[in-house]
Design a binder for these strands. Structure first.
Lengths: 400, 400, 400
DNA sequence: CGCGTTCTAGAATATTCGCAG
DNA sequence: GCTGCGAATATTCTAGAACGC
């Protein structure tokens, strides 16, 4: 697995001014050495030193510890615990994130962020709130309330004790029933989570983590599934192993077909896109016609319809904050009596009738009819294989 | 699925001190009524009132709005915006959580917490940072930086603009590219997220919402092919379907789903095809109307419209000055009994008659016509299988 | 893998104009020469010198740096940072382009343009905005906002921080979460991107770069997972160990793509649905217009338009006993050469025939005409390849 | 074809709620 | 009762995909 141990320690300096999470108040003395480079672990007073030579330690984690250490360096004065916790929390935040994000199919020996966070948390928090059990195999939250209110928000994005326990459970910690009935302290443990044993931390893994899962699974499964593309094996247990080859082939075939199909759909989709534009344009046109109807002079200039987006009526409706009721238009149209169209129609009908009358009047001559007929006959059939096509609709309408 | 909308309001109080996310400083005025219950909506100044009787409104949300309202009640003085935002944020925090959590297989008309949060956020936040677009259809984040730094932590558990956008995308919002290149403002929209339309909010749903979950799950479960591994072989490491088995199963499941999906799409495609025809017909009609109208007002020619409005045949006909390529119309006509068109045509028949009549009048050479006719008839290849077909219509009409 | 670090320096001179290496004059201004340097590299104060003989350095880049350096020579006064950055950006612009174009199937040791740009950027930009981490292993963007607004446009074609990070990710940089939760500074790192180590830059390659192609391929092939179990089977089809892996990967990739595609199509389908509604509405509108036209008062009831099948207009027309065949747009129509109309007219030929026939009937020579007609129709050339013959007369007449 | 820019989605972890044993 | 877990959303980092050059 690819690991990048190099440059790890260096990254410690990454946190120039750890300036922990919350306050901006003098995170670190300006003149103070930015970040002492010495091995950062094992410096928290009262706690066993972390293994000095971090073997497979994630650089970020190392950095976190360093940051915390640095924060404590100046002096263990007032903020001692306070500030150190803050710093540690901050450092951990990033460390956790780092290791996690980077993970994705990580090496098996990676320490989950949460685990690291809790581990650090135990070192920097006030013992009156949370700490190790005497034997160093359990976590003892003595004051759950304070822990939730004061500690949680510094290390997590919440202030609920339940959220903390949820994650503990997620990482396979288990609650240890308190001996005393009334005591409010809570106790958790994990076989591989022990004081001073951060070498075991990588074994504390999330429930559904695929960290090594894949590898293990694969190895476990061993290549059972992809059973050798038919050799002489399938026949034996026809149902079983040979299945794989067949399934594989089917899958590939299906995928090929689907791809082709989708290709076709995509093409059609493009066509649809054009259709959309067309509809939009029609919409504009209709609006225009309607507008012209209402006001002969005020014709909407089409040039005013720059893009496909502007649909006069719609825009107006939008601006008015109206629910877009298409009926409104229709109603309005109905009420206002359609000017242009009606005009046009009436005009047409008038002219037609007139023309017809005239034609009739003039139609005394059969020869004329013949001439007409000629033209007619010539034009009618037009390469239509089945003339019904041409005639039928017309005929029907004519009858009406 | 079981719904228990009742008891919502009560649960609001579940968060004793919502104490918003960040600091512990005075989460809410000690004396202020925790959560006034009166109808809370429509009180934010400057924004259109929400519909008074919330139809599908989640009780928790209602409570949240109430809280926000209450916060503003005391006085609109200094912290007006400030404090109101804070309170709203706090209330929303819990409300959102509540409504969401409670959801689990929710009814479709529930409003996701995030959506409600954003909606409220838009009412209480400084307009110089974030607000509605003019027409109320878009979210306009005018100052993303300030939004991330100041607003986000009040309504969410983070201060990253990206996290905000991620969720917007999750809820199917889409970014609207800014017109100006240099402007840093960001714009998002969702078809059902509009100002003053909280009745539409239930339609804004998360991507993988469980609404469909059931269906998917069922389908996937139903087709559980993943179990093919040899019968007698796997038991050994029956630990779990390994990598390969799992991947294979997933693949097959996916392919199945895709097939079904494509099937559906294909069906819809057919529908689309009909739509196209309809549009084409409409286009022709509009052209016609336009042309008629053109007499009066000289309307802009449709060809001036940028979009792909052209109906191949029609456009071509226009440009060529017309030799009639009627197939397009015919097809459309044939495929869809289009009322308007038929009407049009019937009406036009008159015009044609007139035109013919005139032609007749101009036809001074009857004999020529007759001769031509004769010649034509004589020379014409007789290969017409059913000449009646051709004649019939004419005959019929003649009878009329 | 083939590496050709050698010959690089030589190639430097390849770029003649760039005023390469030796802007000898005033190598370093008195106080703080931003970028003094003879051989352009390795002179930045406070930073370890770049390796004088740039091994994998692209000539163009080298030239770019030189150019930038030269530009600064005159004086490192006011614009020092400002101008230098500008120049560097400009130089890089071209350099990047050049080197890239030149590349194509690059050698493995080429430095991608973006990488070089960032590397340079780190030298010339204001440290308060972006800079190296203390240990020189990470990029620290202290003010993302300013970086996006001020620096980005100088080195890239955008001003979005996200675009920058996208590329960083593309080149396998990883984000290092900020220590402070509230701090807005962003930190990225790449194992081979370190201060003063431009000899490592060639190792910073784009994700899909062909450089690694080989390695990846090899590794994947190598990881012949599905194949382990079979005992005596593999040998048979030992064609390729990675066969199964590859096929599987391809399948999965395909399925992913198909899923995404279908997702898109589904979305579009929804859009289409809206389109359908729109079309329907338009249809109604057109019907309405027409109806109004034919009869001012008799508006078709919308409720009567259930589906696309109903033909309101026609029905109305029927019921109203539409005024016969209307119109005569004659000259108007003829003049404006209206395509659709002409088309219509041609299609109306049937109706025309009828009208003519009727006229004829009323005329004095019914039978003659009828006879002629019949003969004509029967003999009429159906499916005449050249419809012009047929159509022309009619068209001509109509136009007249 | 490749790269850069943009928008969106994937993938892993974190936080919350509710249920079951 | 209360621990452990499923399931949904939230947050973060990274990758996919479309488009322009």
């Amino acid at each position: 697995m690819p690991k990048k141990p190099a440059s790890k320690k260096a990254s410690v300096k990454k946190e120039p001014a750890p300036a922990p999470v919350p306050p901006a108040k003098a995170p670190s003395p300006p003149n103070a050495p930015p970040l002492p480079m010495m091995p950062p672990f094992g410096l928290v007073p009262g706690f066993p030193p972390l293994i000095p030579p971090p073997p497979g330690v994630d650089p970020a984690v190392w950095a976190a510890a360093a940051a915390q250490h640095a924060a404590q360096q100046p002096g263990g004065e007032p903020k001692s615990k306070e500030q150190s916790m803050k710093d540690a929390a901050a450092a951990l935040q990033s460390a956790a994130q780092l290791s996690k994000r980077r993970r994705c199919m990580v090496a098996v020996d990676e320490v989950p962020g949460f685990v690291r966070t809790v581990y650090t948390l135990l070192r920097v928090c006030d013992d009156s709130i949370i700490g190790w059990s005497e034997d160093g195999t359990q976590i003892l939250i003595k004051e759950p309330d304070r822990f939730a209110a004061e500690v949680c928000p510094k290390f997590f994005r919440h202030r609920n004790f339940n959220s903390f326990t949820r994650l503990l459970n997620m990482y396979q910690f288990h609650k240890v029933p308190s001996v005393q009935r009334d005591s409010k302290d809570v106790c958790f443990e994990h076989p591989h989570f022990q004081r001073g044993r951060d070498d075991l931390l990588p074994l504390v893994q999330r429930k559904g983590a695929q960290t090594m899962r894949d590898e293990l699974m694969a190895r476990e499964m061993y290549a059972r599934p992809p059973f050798p593309p038919g050799s002489g094996v399938e026949p034996v247990h026809a149902v079983g192993p040979g299945q794989w080859t067949r399934r594989m082939a089917e899958l590939e075939s299906d995928v090929r077909a689907l791809k082709a199909e989708n290709e076709r759909l995509k093409r059609l989709e493009a066509e649809r896109e054009a259709l959309k534009c067309q509809v939009r344009t029609q919409d504009d046109l209709i609006s225009l016609l309607q507008g012209a109807q209402g006001n002969h002079a005020a014709l909407v200039d089409k040039s005013a319809i720059p893009g496909p987006t502007s649909v006069p009526g719609l825009e107006a409706a939008k601006r008015l904050g109206l629910p877009p009721p298409p009926e409104a238009l229709k109603e309005a149209l109905a009420q206002m009596g359609n000017g242009p169209l009606m005009m046009m129609m009436s005009m047409m009908s008038g002219a037609l009738q007139e023309g017809l009358a005239r034609a009739e009047a003039e139609a005394q001559a059969p020869k004329d009819a013949a001439a007409l007929l000629q033209g007619l006959a010539a034009s009618t059939p037009r390469k239509t294989e089945r003339s019904e096509d041409t005639d039928t609709p017309v005929a029907k309408k004519a009858k009406v």
